[in-house]
Amino acid sequence: MVFDRFRRKDNTPPAPRRSVERKASATARVAQAVQGGHVAWSPRDDASLVRAGFAANPVGFRAVKLIAESAAALSLVLQTQSERYDSHPMLALLARPNPAQGQAELLEALYGQLLLSGNAYVEGAGWGADGPVELHVLRSDRMRVIPGSDGWPAGYEYSVGGRKHRFETAAEATPICHIRSFHPQDDHYGLSPLQAAAMAVDVHNAASRWSKSLLDNAARPSGALVWNGEADSLSEDQFQRLSDEISTSFQGARNAGRPMVLEGGLDWKPMGFSPSDMEFQQTKESAAREIALAFGVPPMLLGIKGDATYANYQEANRAFYRLTVLPLAARVTAALCDWLIPGSDLRLAPDLDQVPALAAEREAQWRRVSSADFLTDAEKRRLLGLPVQTMEGTQDG
C-alpha cells in the first residue's frame, strides 16, 4: 500500500477556503467519546458481514451491485435556484476524480462501501484554492473515527498492515468526507443493511450449505446400515473400516446409484425426508426476500420467486428507483457538494429527466405543469426542478 497520497508536504490540513459558522450542540459533550468499533450494537464485525453477506451470498451480492451500479449511472446536474451549470470545476473533478477511476467507478465504490458498512469515506488529495485535485474512496473497515473532547470527530485514523495515518479535522475544512447511514445507537458510525439482515444471511447461507451436502450425498439421506449379527455390535475396527469404505466408495455425485455389497449380518434400511424436512427450501426463499427487503430491492428484480407485490417488472423497477436509488444518490451527492464547496448555494443532484424508469412519470408531470396557464414560466420551471436559466460557461464557484 502506498501512503504518499495520504500525506501533505507540510503535514498540515487543507487551508479553509471560506468561513463557515459552526455551532456546538448542547449534548455534544455528553455524547459517547469512545467507540469500541464500527459495530457497537452487535458482536458481528464488518469484515465478517461482508464475507458472509456479499462475497458468499448471491442475494446480498446482487442487491448491493444493483443499487450501487444504478446510482452511479445516474446523470448529475449542478445548479442553484436561478441557474444550471454545464461546466464547473466540481463537475470536472467528478468526471475524472483520480488517474485510476472515472466518475462511475468512484461513485460505485462509494455507494458500495455505504451499503456494506453503513459508512463511506472520501479523501480529497492536493487541496488548493478550488478544492482538491483528486478524490479517493477509502475502505471503511480500515478507518476509525477519533472523537474530540466536545464529542465531534477530531480526526480520522486509517490503518493498513500495522501502519497508521491520521487525518486531522480543521474547523472549517477536512480532507475526509464521512457519509454514514442513520444509526440510533451510535454517535460516529452508521448502520448498514447487512447488519439488519445478518440473521437472514445466516439462514440463507446455511440452507445453501444444506443443499450442497444433499448433493454430495445423492440428494437424500440414503439410509442406515443395521447390524443383525450374532454379536451385540460391531467392533471398533469393523465400524471404522465400514465407515471409511462407505465414504470412499458410495458417497458423492460420482458414486450416485452405485450398488452396495453387504457382508453377513448387515441390513440396509432406506430413509427419506419428512414434509417438515423439506421446508428448508421455503425457509431459504423467505430469507432471500428478507435480505432484499433490508436493501430496499424488490425481490422481483432479483429473480426471487413468490413475491407478487408489484403487478409487473416495470412497476417494480420504478419503485426501486423512486424509493431506493434516488434517495440514496440525492443524499450522497448533497454531502459531496457541501464538503467540496461548504456554505455555497450550489446543489448537486440526480437529473430526474434522465432516468428511464421514471420516463412515463416525468412526462405526465411535464404535461400537467405545461398545461397550467395560470403559472408563469419561472413557476413552471421551479415545479419541474429546473433553474431559471442554464449557464454554459465554466464557473469558479
Rank of each mutant, 00 (worst) to 15 (best):
L191R: 15
S192L: 05
S192K: 13
P193E: 15
P193Y: 06
A197V: 02
A197C: 02
A198F: 06
A198I: 12
D202C: 08
V203M: 06
H204Y: 13
N205E: 06
A206N: 14
A207Q: 09
S208N: 12
S208V: 11
W210K: 10
S211I: 07
K212H: 09
L215N: 04
D216W: 08
D216L: 11
A218G: 05
A218T: 10
G223N: 10
G223K: 03
V226H: 00
V226F: 00
W227H: 00
W227Y: 00
G229I: 00
E230G: 01
E230D: 07
E230Q: 05
E230T: 08
D232Y: 10
S233C: 07
S233K: 13
S233P: 08
L234A: 00
S235K: 15
E236Y: 01
D237G: 11
D237W: 09
D237M: 13
Q238T: 00
Q238P: 00
F239K: 01
Q240M: 12
R241D: 15
L242P: 01
S243N: 09
S243A: 09
D244Y: 12
E245P: 03
E245I: 07
S247W: 07
S247G: 08
T248W: 04
S249W: 10
S249K: 15
F250S: 02
G252E: 13
G252V: 04
G252D: 14
A253D: 02
A256G: 10
G257V: 12
P259N: 15
P259G: 15
V261L: 13
V261Y: 04
L262E: 13
L262G: 12
G264A: 12
L266G: 00
L266K: 04
D267G: 01
M271D: 13
S274L: 09
P275T: 02
D277F: 04
E279S: 08
